[in-house]
Design a protein around this nucleic acid. Sequence first.
RNA 1: GUGGCUGUAGCUCAGUCGGUAGAGCCCUGGAUUGUGGCUCCAGUGGUCGUGGGUUCGAGUCCCAUCAGCCACCCCA
Length: 427
Amino acid sequence: MGKKIASIRGMNDILPDETPVWQWLEERARAVLQAYGYREIRLPMVESTELFKRSIGEVTDIVEKEMYTFEDRNGDSLTLRPEGTAGCVRAGEQHNLFYGATPRLWYMGPMFRHERPQAGRYRQFHQMGVEAFGMEGPDIDAEIILMTAALWRALGLEDEVTLELNSLGDAHDRQRHREALVAYLSDHREQLDDDSQRRLERNPLRILDSKDANTQKVLEDAPRLADYLGESARAHFHELRAILDAAGIEYRINSSLVRGLDYYGKTVFEWVTDALGAQGTVCAGGRYDGLASQLGGRDTPAVGFAMGLERLVWLLSRDGGEREPVPDVYIVAPEHRARALTLADELRTGLPGRRILCHCGGGSFKSQMKKADKSGARLALMLGEAELERSEAVVKPMRGGGEQQSVALAELPARLSQWLARQDETR
RNA sequence: GUGGCUGUAGCUCAGUCGGUAGAGCCCUGGAUUGUGGCUCCAGUGGUCGUGGGUUCGAGUCCCAUCAGCCACCCCA
């Protein structure tokens, strides 16, 4: 026997015990997205490396050290997508989806980042993302946030998450603030922690959410982005808040909320939970008006967000809720395998939507009954020598009360359907 | 990428001072020759993560490596 091959670090199998939660989550989310009129787009998992460098930003951690980048056989540099927005913008541009249109799109699938795995953070992880193009007013920002709130209600998570909100202003607002911030922090360089000193050149905004106490003290008197917002950004943010207030959405203004990707401007938001350890962000997004033109397309305002599905699944799984449907009927038949299998198919057509399991793999009558029990099936259907001679089968309720009964094969679909319907009611 | 903790049966874990591995659950069979669950009995299952080293002897000590967890960095 050869050496065992294991999955790649940080790239996990999602096992049959877990897939019901995933499916449940995906179904619920799809329904909400659909109700808001958003349409699905399916995008490649691999794009040209250049796309991510130009959109996410050359000096971000994602691009500098987290991308899965490789050369294909032509010598082109390709990258496994670390996020979905860049590819979505690229596709919209390539197929003229933005031309005179204001598409509302969503997508779902795996993303890849070479980070150290940790609770709620993996190298292959899944996001559901939403992007709305061509609308520059705060109403669409609000709609998107309202939609996320509806999503939490649909998932029963509304008490688990809270909304944080900020405005990053226009590009030139950020530029002026950034210069003032760097100037101020440079004067206090010695009082900053090591990480923050390093960030001073590379990504000064990040210093704002440093956890170092001294650094936070220095920051108290630092220039605030809010004071640098121009008239248009200020009005945009004001109106967004007015809509959210009118809709009864609660939020907290977090002035140190900065997104890690360079393309964001104006509105940024995060839904966070304290139930997830260090990875509290469950959904994050914002406005990125400059991205389309930055990628060589026409100017197209845009807002979007992405949710981390592993994190949501984790929240949903904590209660250990049963979402796996049990078999309705389990067919036990030590002999007459062909008859058992064809009967199973007859029942599947006769009882659409029901789960019919036919025992396979041999074993005594008794051991097959044990399997029926273990499967959690509601009814066992026993098909033996004596029954078949009379063209009958024995139906035995496995859970709850009730006596077993002999039923003519011809009447099985009707009788089983009645039986199951009655059980459905008393549940 | 940095630091800390942890890897023993399918699962949860015990294993003392270094002396060639155990429990519970699960699984299989039987008690009950065609009837699940409860009970009792028996049985299967291990390269002790992997590779080196020290030792007469390593699950136990040392080194490396891989993986998992937690935190940092960063992020969904």
